[in-house]
């Protein structure tokens, strides 16, 4: 599968919403797109997905432009919209099934895959309920099921966890990771630091400009923990604070997954795991984590397996 490339993308309406962005969203990786409200995340996703035509520059995938001239996305693209984009009079299953049928999937297979997709998000019992009868969180999961079930080459998710609790958030991140592992380009616009933490790459936007191309966050593997500590030391020393327009993203906080024990991808609870990352490292240095088997690694779920590209 190919990367999704944005070259010199500018978008202007009454003001410039995006300023000459050059970005590559790599295939097989999850990329977080963060920034304050109004920073241009959704606009960037819309241009990347071919919903909007940039004022300048272009977005391409597999060598072909994303913009088709009509505002309709390419079949290789799947969206999980911030406003969900569900059809109220269709049921949850029908909303998902329509996306598959639009891609010429056989109706029976589409219904079956729709049911499976809903089941992945633990809302199989809502399959026959009309969407307008669902709660916000349930609708978001239906939108996610729809976006993920089509097996698109590019998956663009706008605030996919905004309505979800921690358990479901972990579930969503696991599914996104599965898509990335399949080789898709996965881009997630988010305010949620945990989601940012879970991604391989991270771009921060502020007023339509990239303000930080943050290194991927990896938990220190054996012999590599120093890099993270040194990163934190440098940060605490203020080296980043002196840089203009740098938005420091707090790496601490709760692990991305702390939810359901019965989910096979859930990470087990760990002592002290809810403290800051620094305290987490301190604990590691104290040796309490050195002996922790890899299965207890809270970030195992989202980590790229060693040796993977």
């Amino acid at each position: 599968m190919s990367d999704l490339r944005l070259s010199g993308v500018r978008y202007e309406l009454t003001r410039t919403l995006l300023h000459d962005l050059d970005l590559t969203f790599a295939a097989g990786r999850m990329t977080a797109l963060s920034g304050p409200s109004g920073s241009g995340k959704t606009t960037l996703l819309s241009i990347a997905g071919g919903l909007l035509r940039p004022t300048a520059g272009e977005a391409t995938y597999a060598g072909a432009p994303m913009w088709r001239g009509t505002g309709d996305p390419r079949p290789e693209v799947s969206f999980v919209l911030q406003v969900y984009g569900l059809v109220p009079i269709l049921s949850a299953r029908e909303n998902v099934s329509v996306a598959l049928r639009a891609r010429d999937v056989d109706p029976d297979e589409a219904d079956e895959r729709a049911a499976q997709a809903l089941a992945r998000f633990h809302i199989a019992d809502l399959a026959d309920r009309q969407v307008e009868e669902l709660s916000g969180g349930q609708m978001q999961r239906v939108a996610l099921a729809r976006g993920l079930c089509v097996g698109a080459g590019v998956l663009l998710a706008d605030e996919p966890t905004s309505e979800l609790d921690e358990g479901n958030r972990g579930l969503v991140l696991a599914e996104l990771r599965r898509e990335a592992d399949r080789g898709a380009v996965v881009v997630v616009a988010t305010h949620d630091p945990a989601v940012v933490d879970a991604c391989d790459d991270h771009h921060a936007l502020d007023e339509g400009r990239l303000v930080d191309h943050t290194e991927p966050v990896h938990l220190p593997a054996e012999g590599s923990r120093g890099s993270l500590r040194s990163h934190l030391d440098q940060r605490d020393a203020g080296s980043h604070l002196d840089q203009p327009d740098v938005q420091v993203v707090e790496q601490g906080g709760a692990p991305a997954t702390s939810g359901r024990r019965d989910h096979p991808t859930d990470a087990p609870d760990q002592p002290g795991s809810r403290g800051s990352l620094r305290s987490h490292l301190d604990q590691q240095d104290a040796g309490s984590d050195l002996d922790r088997p890899e299965d207890d690694d809270p970030y195992e779920l989202f980590r790229r397996p060693p040796g993977s590209p």
Binding site: D72, P73, S78, V98, A99
Partner: peptide, 11 residues
């Protein structure tokens, strides 16, 4: 509704 259906590929 039309926008939502077009977003998922219905022409």
């Amino acid at each position: 509704d039309v926008a939502a259906l077009r977003a998922v590929g219905v022409d």
